[in-house]
Design a protein around this nucleic acid. Sequence first.
DNA 1: TAGCGTAGGTATACGTCGTATAGCCAGGGG
DNA 2: CCCCTGGCTATACGACGTATACCTACGCTA
Lengths: 242, 242
Amino acid sequence: MARRTRPVDTDPEGRPVRRALTRDYIVATALAVLDRDGVDGLSMRKLATELGVNPMAVYHHLPNKAALFDGVVEAVFSEFLAEDDLELRTGTWRDHLTAHLRRLRDVLRRHPNVLPVLATRPAHAPAMMEFGDRVIGLLSGSGFTEHDLLVIISSLRTYTIGQVLNEAAHPVGGAAPRAEDIAALMRRYPNLSKALDGGHDPDAQYALTVQCMLDGFENRMRKSGMDQADTGVAAGTRSARS
Amino acid sequence: MARRTRPVDTDPEGRPVRRALTRDYIVATALAVLDRDGVDGLSMRKLATELGVNPMAVYHHLPNKAALFDGVVEAVFSEFLAEDDLELRTGTWRDHLTAHLRRLRDVLRRHPNVLPVLATRPAHAPAMMEFGDRVIGLLSGSGFTEHDLLVIISSLRTYTIGQVLNEAAHPVGGAAPRAEDIAALMRRYPNLSKALDGGHDPDAQYALTVQCMLDGFENRMRKSGMDQADTGVAAGTRSARS
DNA sequence: TAGCGTAGGTATACGTCGTATAGCCAGGGG
DNA sequence: CCCCTGGCTATACGACGTATACCTACGCTA
């Protein structure tokens, strides 16, 4: 491998075979490897060969592996923010928040292998702050204080990430569980079994919990109805059971 | 090291210096090391020297490191269940649930370094199932269906774990952030800054969010008031702002 | 009591990991 | 023209998880 030592190598037809190495390109490749091979499958050395480069080359753009992980998490949030920008801003504050969270959940579910990394890197990701800031700005006229909006959005974000993490269930040290073992184990718990017969729909559980949380926040924190056409939403959607 | 090859070595006074090696003893030692040195500080080799034993000895009691992590998580949950057993069962369903969650949160906060491991190992821990099962049984007479109770308890558990994980903020790949950097970064987001002046109390946020979630669940899912002395709790605690 | 299987430890080794250190080399500014 | 510097390579080190093989005292049966 690496028959030539030149910055731009060429394939037999003479076209460049290796892109210029930048931080963004490295991070994007790392995200792809992570999606494909999981957390334990992403090593600096494998990343380097994926880039067609010496392992140490990466260290000229990123100080260490932790910074690489930071970059990957940031990339995922950037993906979310890009999608989020496309949405129009109509409807009630509840519509805004639920749509926001749905997009967040979609992006996270698209990268299940990033979740263990993302979930343990909470507050200091700039994209995460961007997330909070824009939602607070968006809903600042809806009758909540900024502080309350921060509580709302960060609690919902925490729950959303945790829920997607639960559904993905990719333990950080390897060792995926087998579904039948779980089922066998659960038979030992009668109340759990009773709660689970008739199946269990995680999507419905998520949606229901979010609506309940919004109800609760509105009930305790909302000062008055400053939002247009937004009265009685909680009561009106009482029938929205799964 | 290991001057004698016998299962029980002795110190100069002749007392045994090494306890018998069992799965439980290994797991307990691993938990102690994890608490002290963090996830990246727990290796099979360090654990073995901590036990005064050859690295491979551990593999006679646990198949691999993932199983060791499973055991540690199980041990933490067992700690929680032991404390939980001591509590009396009086008061309303809200009292039960909030007390339950407070104990869970306390135990988790006692082991911040276990959190990244625990949070990525969600459903198949027997102690976690025990958790759900007993709460469902405890609250089965409170006007919720078993299925709804499962939704409630698992959502609250997910939020609780995520919140403690956020507060601990120990990223899985190393790289702890510095508080001043976070503050500097936050100044770039005006809405966030406005929301955070006057300080931010994570305990209050947690308690408030839990109460709001309980309000919401009660509002949408509770059939009738079968619990004693429990009517109007949500409205009655409206003034319990932080 | 002699023999032996086995449980539970040790010894050694392999391949992989993150990354420190040092060298190499083309492009550009004096 | 020469040298500095930025970006890549080469090599090396120590730690990691764990496969494999070996050893040895204990408890069983005959």
